[in-house]
Design a protein around this nucleic acid. Structure first.
Lengths: 332, 332
DNA sequence: ATGAAAGCGCTAACAT
DNA sequence: ATGTTAGCGCTTTCAT
């Protein structure tokens, strides 16, 4: 439990001034080769590591950290997103500060505050509705990028929710399905859900087909979805395919189809998961790229830090249609 | 993009000295009620937030951050673990620094180094085999707790891998199963896997049953597991139950049983997952509590920071047996 | 109850 | 090529 050696300790041992040691460490000013070697030897011998906090204070600039706020890490999607940010950050010598908002704007504000007090270089936020990250970041002069969902007046990086849903549903329509049900919270509160619903409707419009209202069903939890699907299957004109806008809905749909023995009904979900190939009925998916979402957000934020002051822009990370099982054509 | 206000700005505006502002902020020395109010008003008006890095420098103590190193955040288990740490940290006014090692000891060392350079108060590490976190933390005088797997000469918090596996397998034996197969990487390199194998064997020993060697099968990937299960099912005396030591193995087992139409074979996996109830055949599980693992690790580390210097200890977080599907008794 | 001065560990600015 | 001085934003002495 010794006191950690400081730059002055190294300077004294090496018989040079503090500034010379600093020069060696940061490779700025000119240093004689012999001096450099001597200093480096002492650094190694003492196990000296410069105090990054002290450096940050002195240079006045932002600290070499990236602040990341996600709603919650139990959700593997946000875990993967955080992983993408971490990897991209580490590759650039940056360290990630991680906070969870729980989707609560007050908690988000608190976490952002704590990050700003640590002088993070940039801020990446999956926004809670009603948060004030934009104002906070602006007041502190810190670049802010919203991830997964847009927020007011700042850059953002999102998945191609609308196009992904459209392509997925278009694929089903292309297989001959006409009655394709949509499962989600209704009305969708989250941006991502609204976009997916829009994509679903666009696919119908593009195919010149009008979806019966009855085929858009409320499903917040897996239990909701299970009931909703049973109800849909009992219709005189039941759907031949289901589009689940989120994984809870997909879970319920798999359960309902399995229990009802209706494995011929095609099932497509937004968001992929490792076990999709093992499910019965098989689950096709519009897969997102959460890690890429995080990495792209960091890139954008660092560009801002670098002085890019063009108007806020939205970057879209493409989704990928993953088809599983035999092509489930419609049976008229 | 204004310069952020400093403590001195507040002092000037309030017509007091810097130290008085400091006293108001930290509530230490005595301050007249009127002065306090005036200072607080200015703080609010200017939107002043003390620079935590500067404070850390001056007090010399550890910074109010917790360093967490996990192998990888694509794995929902480590995501949930990180979530547990974050929540426990935030509840105590601490901020989490997050790093990924990718299971590579060199990367782990690098990340730990970066954390120590930031003067984290404590270090929580899911160790890569061959890492040197213990030496690094000791040299820096920072409390270290290993999570999920033990490491040399430091506290650690792990799941009840052995007891969990033992109970799970004992349950199967209690249902009358005698030929229970074990699926895992062999020989198990990871601590967790070794413990689970030991638990499996202990359950047999306790029941006075000797598992045939053939029933311990190699399965690293889901594809391995699928093949292994098919091979096992083709034996003259096939297993009536399977114990998958990790989720890849479970995935392959579900696939194999489903495709072979052998849904009567009982399946139990270590580690639970949200979709287990939807699988066919149903998947029972020994569920871990990753968030609790993280929270417990932080508690232990903070106790050390608080001066607890008893010998290193290991804390075990219990697993929970989650049974699904109809009780799959053995059919002799 | 308040303030002035010194200093945490480091680097920017100006020496030499 | 190296050293000296000053000072980042804050807190710790030690005054008053």
């Amino acid at each position: 439990m010794e006191r950690r050696p400081t730059l002055h300790d190294v300077a004294r041992e090496a018989g040079v001034s503090a500034k010379t040691v600093s020069r060696v460490l940061n490779g700025d000013g000119p240093v004689a080769a012999a001096t450099r070697e001597r200093v480096q030897a002492v650094v190694r011998r003492l196990g000296f590591r410069p105090n990054l906090l002290a450096r940050s204070i002195r240079t006045g600039g932002p600290d070499s950290t990236v602040g990341l706020v996600v709603p919650d890490l139990d959700n593997p999607f946000f875990g993967a997103l955080a992983g993408g940010v971490e990897e991209a950050a580490r590759a650039r010598g940056l360290t990630v500060l991680l906070g969870c908002s729980g989707g609560d704007p007050a908690r988000e504000t608190e976490v952002v505050s704590a990050f700003l007090a640590r002088r993070t270089a940039v801020l990446l936020v999956v926004p809670a509705t009603g948060g004030e990250a934009t104002a906070q970041a602006r007041a502190a002069g810190v670049p802010l990028v919203f991830v997964d969902r847009p927020g007011p007046d700042a850059d953002c990086v999102v998945s191609s929710n609308r196009a992904g849903a459209r392509e997925g549903v278009a694929h089903l329509l292309g297989l001959g399905h006409r009655r394709v049900a949509f499962l989600d919270d209704l009305p969708p509160e989250l941006y991502t859900r609204r976009e997916r619903l829009a994509g679903y409707l666009e696919a119908f419009a593009a195919a010149g087909v009008t979806p019966a209202d009855a085929l858009v069903a409320e499903a917040r939890t897996a239990a909701d979805a299970e009931l909703a699907v049973l109800r849909l299957l009992a219709l005189p004109d039941p759907p031949t395919a289901l589009f689940a806008s989120h994984l809870n809905a997909a879970t319920g749909a798999v359960l309902a189809l399995g229990r009802a023995g209706r494995r011929e009904v095609a099932l497509l979900a937004f968001d992929d998961l490792p076990l999709a190939e093992v499910l019965d009925p098989p689950l096709s998916a519009v897969a997102q790229a959460p890690a890429e979402l995080g990495a792209a957000a960091l890139r954008l934020a660092l560009a801002r830090l670098d002085g890019d002051d063009s108007p806020p822009r939205t970057e879209t990370v493409p989704t990928r249609l993953v088809l599983r099982g035999r092509p489930a054509t419609a049976r008229p």
